[in-house]
Amino acid sequence: MFPHLTSLGIHDPTQIERYTLRQEALKDVLKIYFHKQRGELFAKSVKFKYPRQVKNVLVDSGSHQYKEVTEINRNLTLVIDELNRITTPEQLSESDLKEKILNDLRHLEKVVTSKIHEIETDLMKLK
């Protein structure tokens, strides 16, 4: 019934509560949250990363200029279709959307800070 979710190792899709999808560099990150079980402090979740597909698109046929664009992985779209059949996609209010954007910005800041630290550490090893 849900072959793409099963292929990800999710054997009981009825336990899925919601999911989030965000883009990091050239990857899409899908995080699936499950219903909280009795006795658990936090709901269980799993994360999957899908590389974005890179395509060259003709921008100007006269000068034969191409532009590189990325798009969502086909397998990910199939997984999302199945997830949408299980969950009800959230309709965010303006304040919820603002909070989501702020959370995304905070997450991006952490990722960038961590990467900068990693690069600086690598540089120090070269001295």
Rank of each mutant, 00 (worst) to 15 (best):
N75K: 15
I16S: 06
S114L: 07
L5V: 09
L76V: 10
H35K: 11
E118D: 14
L41Y: 14
L123A: 13
K115T: 02
L76G: 00
V46K: 07
S61K: 09
D104V: 13
H117T: 10
L97Q: 05
P89C: 08
V111F: 06
M124T: 05
I101E: 05
K67T: 02
V79G: 01
Q23C: 07
L105V: 14
D122N: 15
L21P: 01
L78C: 09
I10R: 01
Y19I: 07
L21V: 00
R85E: 12
P89M: 11
L102M: 10
P13I: 01
G39D: 05
K27C: 03
R74S: 10
P13G: 03
A25K: 09
D96K: 07
S7M: 08
Q91E: 06
E24Q: 10
V112Q: 06
D104A: 15
E17F: 04
T121S: 11
F2K: 03
S95R: 07
N75S: 14
Y33I: 01
R74L: 13
D122C: 14
K49E: 13
K47P: 00
I116E: 14
T121W: 14
L8V: 03
Y19T: 04
N103T: 10
V57I: 15
L108Y: 11
K115Q: 07
E71P: 00
E71V: 06
K36T: 05
E90G: 00
L30T: 03
D60N: 15
K27W: 02
D60Q: 12
S63Q: 10
G62H: 13
S61E: 09
D60V: 07
N84L: 09
E99G: 12
E120F: 12
I86Y: 04
E90C: 05
V54K: 12
R18D: 00
K127I: 05
D96P: 02
S63W: 04
D96E: 10
T77W: 03
A25E: 02
T88C: 07
K36C: 12
H64N: 11
L78D: 08
T6S: 14
F48H: 08
Y66A: 06
E94F: 13
G39C: 07
R22L: 12
I101W: 08
R38L: 08
E99Y: 09
V46M: 11
R38H: 04
K49S: 12
M1A: 15
D104M: 10
T121Y: 14
V79E: 02
T77G: 10
L21D: 01
I80V: 15
I72R: 07
I16R: 07
E24P: 00
F42Y: 08
P13H: 01
K127S: 05
H4R: 13
D96N: 06
E118N: 09
V69K: 12
V111G: 03
M124G: 04
Y19E: 02
Y33R: 01
I116P: 01
L5F: 05
N75C: 12
L5D: 00
V29F: 04
K47V: 15
G62N: 14
E90I: 10
E40I: 07
E40C: 10
V112S: 06
H64Y: 13
P3M: 12
D28L: 11
H64V: 09
E90P: 02
L26P: 01
K31W: 05
I10N: 00
I119S: 03
